[in-house]
Design a protein around this nucleic acid. Structure first.
Lengths: 335, 335
DNA sequence: TACATTCATCGAACCGGTTCGAGGAAGAAG
DNA sequence: CTTCTTCCTCGAACCGGTTCGATGAATGTA
């Protein structure tokens, strides 16, 4: 039914292999022949069959994207990771196989064992991620987004949460703040092993201690109305705190309404600094000074490194662990 | 490198074809042989190569998911369509190739021509969608999410916006409202051909006219602070209106804060009814009575019909256009 | 005992590409 | 006019599965 390379060969009056070489350019082809082949390809509308090509070359030009949608997670944020991966992959000639199964380990084994993909990107990697053993056993290389406990042999990309915390503390300390509240992601994120919560929190505490500041750490909530209740309780419990650091997407999205409702003015009554993805802040038009990370950078770098490793496992060199530098954008919510 | 069916055959002391039949069950295999084969498969960890199988069967067990991310769209909502498609596909044994390219037509041609997919789901189909010609020319079947102008030969799934509008108008009319504001999606959605905006708006106007109501239609905005400005302007311009219907995700998400800021109480001063996806409302804990649609139903039904058609193009019968019935959930924001 | 069935398995062909080695034609060198 | 290169093209093998027809063994029937 579909047009095969044989059809093209017949129409151009050459052999299959000649057509193949004309397409790949791996051997010289006379101008006259090339022209006939090009014409045949164009009029017949030939496109090489992916399965056959994969079989012959052991290259599928497909990258598996393994996502983990934790229930209770702030789902909208996920897309900010998926799209850049997809776009970057396509730029480099790869398609994306989106894998969303609950049993991520089995799914990873499936797509690698069947050879459906040339490599995989693991999104939302947690501290002790069960997928990593399977990945290490796989023939295809992988790139991680998120820092696990053990990174041996793996290419890892994550945001620099420690540096983000230090930047924010420095900023507030410079403005004269001495008592600061830190709202982290919800407890269950920590329990699940999302170490980025600790990395931010610990770095903030440590930096604060060095300056002799009072830092009050709290776990945030992920849903209304709990978010509002918890923020109100925290602010009531720490009336002397002059600054609020929020590392919690759901909370920061709800914060303007919560503060407005309790009559707290920013930055007059309270300085607020947040930490979120650039696009997230833009989508919700958040008015806060923030350390903005670029998850698109994450996906992009992960895919680039992955493709490098697919192309030449040796040449790509030793595995890397790379942190994306954060940037503080001042929107005037501190003073 | 990887384990092939030949390795299994050797270890079990049988031919390749016997192994194949043992796996597929398409011919009877003696208990003893089957046992040896199963053992070999298990210890060697064999999984059939996807490319080779695709080549032999002309079935890839992959469905292409073609998304269109319009700039300025409320992106978070997109995921609500993607996940159900992916989950349903996997349930039926299919994987998902996620295609996000800007040039959707070329991308569609690419994945169908190369035979990477057995069928495609087109998301966010607009009134005059350029992808449809390519789809009709493709060998593989497709299912649409979103109603285009011409549906001939296509399986189409969409929410029932007309019925939603009628339900809401009936509800408000029953409560005694006689002057009602309708806020539609932003103008650019209409310009782009998102006919669902018209379908809701027109149905609301028609139903309103039948009851002799005053219906004031407006286009909404997609970003703050324009959303707030526009809502305030509209409410100021129609002081006699007693009810507000919002068919606009970005606006409804921002509405609680906007109304709180201007001191408008719901439902005392104003009845509010909205229209959105179930999960969207849950994620933002929206407090409004709403006609809730289930986009997961859309994706699910689209995939099921697509798989049916892949399995047997004839048996699947004539193309269908199916609307998902809406449901009105009363949250007490009307009176 | 001979013959027809049924059962289990095998070999070969095929799917549609890629790639290697070989070989004919044309041009260069002796 | 040979002989050696270089250029271009071809045929065959291969990638790893599936599927058809054939065949030998086991079982049933006359």
């Amino acid at each position: 039914m579909a047009v095969t390379i044989m059809d093209v060969a017949r129409r151009a009056g050459v052999s299959r292999s000649t057509v193949s070489y004309a397409i790949s350019g791996k051997r010289t082809i006379s101008a006259a022949t090339r022209e006939r082949i090009d014409e045949a390809i164009a009029t017949l509308g030939f496109t090489a069959n992916a399965g056959a090509r994969a079989l012959a070359t052991s290259q599928t030009m497909v990258i598996g994207l393994l996502t983990q949608f934790h229930q209770d997670e702030f789902a909208p944020a996920m897309l900010q990771y998926v799209l850049p991966v997809s776009d970057t992959a396509r730029e480099l000639g790869y398609d994306i196989l989106l894998v969303t199964e609950t049993d991520a380990t089995a799914a990873l084994r499936r797509v690698t064992r069947t050879g459906m993909v040339d490599g995989v990107v693991l999104l939302d990697v947690v501290h002790e991620d069960p997928r990593l053993d399977t990945l290490r056993a796989a023939e295809q290389p992988g790139a991680l987004v998120g820092l696990p406990k053990r990174t041996e042999g793996l290419d890892v990309f994550d945001l620099d949460f420690g540096e983000s915390a230090r930047m924010i503390i420095d900023h507030l300390y410079g403005l004269g703040h001495r008592e600061i509240i830190v709202v982290s992601p919800p407890m269950h994120v920590f329990e699940r092993g999302g170490a980025y919560g600790w990395r931010f929190r610990d770095a903030a505490l440590e930096r604060g201690a060095r300056y002799g500041l009072q830092i009050h750490p709290y776990f945030g909530e992920s849903r209304q109305p709990q978010i509002g209740q918890s923020i109100n309780a925290i602010l009531d419990a720490r009336p002397a705190a002059t600054a609020l650091i929020v590392h919690n997407d759901a909370t920061i999205a709800a914060l303007p309404a919560i503060l407005a409702a309790r009559g707290t003015r920013v930055p007059t009554d309270l300085s607020v600094v947040s930490l979120y993805a650039k696009d997230f802040g833009r989508a919700f038009s958040l008015p806060y000074t923030a350390v903005e990370s670029s998850p698109d950078q994450l996906g992009q770098q992960a895919v680039r490194q992955l493709v490098r490793r697919i192309a030449d496992p040796e040449l790509a060199g030793a595995p890397v662990t790379r942190f994306i530098a954060p940037e503080l954008t001042n929107r005037g919510s501190t003073r």
